[in-house]
């Protein structure tokens, strides 16, 4: 029975290599999501006419409907309008737009949470306009927004296996292909996928918690 388990190390290698796709997706899409969120949050904070209500609609719709639906929308509907994307850019775009909406709310809330007292104090001290934004608003807002942004990052990474469902060759896709080819062994590949997420998520979460404690406001 010894040779029964010899495939396990190979499978480990194959699946962890596919797991790089999940990491890459997160690393590529998350900065884009932050960019989307910064622009949309700024539009709402400044209150630009016409654009602000569109942003509100975008944020509310995205936050109330499933990521899977957005993924399939980008994958199947955009081609009807002439925008044909491969699975990979479609996945990156979906993740950027989806988590951009969540982060948009995070950033807006961070801005709102800065008390008027702090801003008034800054004004009294002679800081105004761009200087006040640069020296007071942004540093405080970043610290307030850090914990929820870190949570969203973990959440984004944890959501990456859904791309397997549109045939992006990520770790879950690799595991499911293996299961289809070798029925009756599903516990091993799925166990390896679970292990992959444990060894990536748990240390990252702990690191982010530590940073949070260090940068805590107040």
């Amino acid at each position: 029975m010894k040779e029964r388990w010899t495939y396990v190390p190979d499978l480990f290698g194959v699946l962890f290599a596919a797991g790089l796709v999940n990491v890459q997706l997160t690393v590529l899409a998350f900065p884009l999501a932050i960019a989307v969120a910064l622009v949309t949050a700024a539009i709402r904070i400044v209150g630009i006419p016409f654009l602000a209500p569109i942003v509100v609609g975008y944020v509310e719709i995205v936050r109330t409907t499933p990521l899977l639906l957005h993924l399939f929308f980008v994958f199947y509907v955009l081609p009807l309008f002439g925008l044909v994307l491969d699975a990979w850019p479609a996945a990156v775009l979906t993740f950027a737009l989806h988590f951009g909406a969540y982060l948009s709310e995070v950033f807006r809330a961070a801005h709102t949470s800065i008390s008027t007292g702090v801003l008034e104090a800054a004004t009294v001290l002679g800081l105004r306009g761009a200087t006040r934004v640069r020296r007071i608003t942004i540093p405080v807002a970043i610290r307030v927004a850090f914990p929820p942004t870190a949570n969203t990052l973990i959440e984004a990474f944890r959501s990456t296996p859904v791309v397997a469902l549109v045939a992006v060759p990520d770790i879950l896709f690799a595991a499911l292909s293996y299961i289809r080819a070798n029925p009756g062994t599903s516990i091993v590949p799925l166990g390896i996928v679970a292990l992959f997420f444990c060894v990536t998520c748990i240390p990252t979460t702990m690191l982010l918690r530590r940073l949070e404690r260090r940068w805590r406001v107040g």
Partner: peptide
Amino acid sequence: IHVGRAIPVLVQLFAWYYVLPQ
């Protein structure tokens, strides 16, 4: 709690669906 929060929902779903019948 740490392990449960690290493993994606979709992976847990497939695990219940494929592994239990085994």
